[in-house]
Amino acid sequence: MILTPGAFVRCGLIAVAAVILQISGLGTGRVFGGYVDLVPLVVVAVAIYAGSIPGASMGFGVGLLLDLLVGQTMGISSLVLTAVGYGVGRYREVRDPAHGLMAIPVGAAATLAWVLAYAAVSFMLEIGASVSPVVIREMIATTLLGALLALPVFAICRRILRPVLLIDPLDLRRRRQGPRETGPIGLRGLEV
């Protein structure tokens, strides 16, 4: 990502829009026992397009905003989302995924990681009440909804971030060429 004021504004807009939409409406709509969670999706969308440092920064910022606006214990969401954003950013840097449908597994994995890590941290810190098995069902349903919503969310984030991206993984995929069909067998693909 090109670190310009425009890049920060774009990331900030995504963060504020996602958090406001989440707490003001989408988070309450129950579908098959789960709820739509935009928060991890926008964090990993930034991480997958921009890398680990922007991913971790976005995770921290979105988590901080969420904790501030919801009034819950500060630091939990930012800690978990920083880890999720960094992890997905590192995955992009190491594996360089460029498949058009990569958003689906990445979105599902990130949502699952978010709900599990959030639950774990909440338990360690302060939750002392009984927990129903319904929570597990809700986590699974939320993960599936995350997978379903990942494609449109990633597409919107990509559209917003594209002008400030150094490398767009999806563009990279289009530019990749297949191996050369001619030349000495040991030198195929090496442009000799």
Partner: peptide
Amino acid sequence: ARSPTVWYSSVK
């Protein structure tokens, strides 16, 4: 506004 998680049930 509503808390988006099941761990903290609060509304604004």
